[in-house]
Design a protein around this nucleic acid. Structure first.
Lengths: 215, 215
DNA sequence: GACTGGCAGTGACTATTATCACAGAGGGAG
DNA sequence: CTCCCTCTGTGATAATAGTCACTGCCAGTC
């Protein structure tokens, strides 16, 4: 079992060196997360670095009135940058993370993940690369909110969704509206327009993407 | 001269250990930057970590049509997180940084700032803290764009400005509009409203802030 | 097969922000 | 002092997005 688990991790994190993998196996816990479960909540104290082994997480921001917007998705092989940063001082999360599908996460105690920065070159690189990647994705999200109309943001959203989970988007218009911090009716109308161009087809509870580039 | 410079750096970066300060003095260059000068451009390759010794920098994002929006300000003692992340692989900047006032920046060659992560504990902590701080500020900016109307964003902007450069805001309405990615007329009208509540007083080319909290 | 609850479509209206057009005011250069 | 450029104020209008009200639809359940 240990052996297969190691191979499993290795497959998702091929850049890690052997001794690091051993350390991960020896000291971290692997947690099964159900669909819809919250992996991280705003205000929660963080004592572990979170790596994603399987499944899909969405990372988003929520305000005091329950509005939210999607920051980015995490896929197998990704790490939650926030959990790495808070790590340093047992600080509080500024974000929410929720499992979109059933998922497995690796939880590495904060003090270890910090030690490893000095101990394992591949870990250090991984952490820096994660910071950078998340920062860039966040900037992209920011761009789309700041510079684009809702129609383009919706397009951006759909494209990102296709990238992480394929051309069958199993979401209601209401859910999309929530993640874009808009309203159901507006999203419905915009989707309708997209359908008329032939880019997508609408069904109950899911959207079939044909070609988003033509729009 | 060397001695005074060292004391100067020490004053702005009191958390650095002695040997680190010596290394900084020995291997980094200090550059004078004029008001309005661009310290960093989108697409530019980054080969140094940037620390701010004096003056004020604004860090912002620009799209292909020349629209921009303010991400955050950097004050003496701060570091450009982006320059630290790109550092790792000579990567390209995703952001713009411009001197709001005359400023002095410390430029540390990338390969050194990376070595120091392992060599100096205080440097490592500083880098992690910088990442975290910028990330949080970025999230705040994101919040205000995603969840707030322009009136609240303007308020947020003015408050931030007061914090970094005092109650006399020497900006035209046009400049404010640009940084909020809005239009001059709209900003003028909103400012007028704020003036009517007594929160600010409007003058040519500058705004006198009385009390932004009452609004 | 009838009831029910969530989902989707649509028209009418409102609110916010952007754009256009223009007028007046202030301040520096000559 | 005058010219001129930039900054500011303001009304009218347009475009975008959000809200409200209502309808029909589909799927599961009893």
């Amino acid at each position: 079992m240990e052996i297969t688990q190691k191979e499993n991790i290795l497959k998702k994190f091929p850049q890690f060196e052997q001794p690091l993998l051993d350390d991960i196996l020896a000291h971290s816990t692997i947690r099964q997360v159900e669909e819809g479960e919250e992996v991280m909540r705003t205000g929660q104290f963080i004592r572990s670095t979170v790596l994603l082994l399987s499944g899909l997480l969405k990372v988003y921001r929520e305000d005091d009135e329950g509005n939210e917007f999607l920051m980015y998705y995490l896929e197998p092989g990704d790490a939650c940058a926030m959990s790495m940063m808070c790590t340093a001082r047992d600080e509080q999360s500024q974000i929410m993370a929720k499992a979109v599908t059933e998922a497995e996460v690796i939880l590495i105690p904060s003090h270890l993940s910090e030690q490893w920065l000095a101990k394992y070159k591949t870990w250090h690189n991984f952490v820096i690369a994660s910071y950078r990647q998340r920062f860039e994705e966040l900037l992209q999200t920011l761009d789309s909110i700041a510079f684009k109309g809702l129609d383009e943001r919706l397009l951006f959203y759909l494209k990102r969704h296709v990238k992480v989970s394929g051309k069958e988007i199993r979401l209601s218009h209401q859910q999309i509206a929530l993640e874009l911090n808009s309203s159901r009716e507006v999203i419905s109308r915009l989707l309708k327009k997209l359908e008329q161009t032939g880019a997508i087809a609408l069904h109950r509870n899911y959207i079939e993407v044909h070609d988003l580039e033509v729009v």
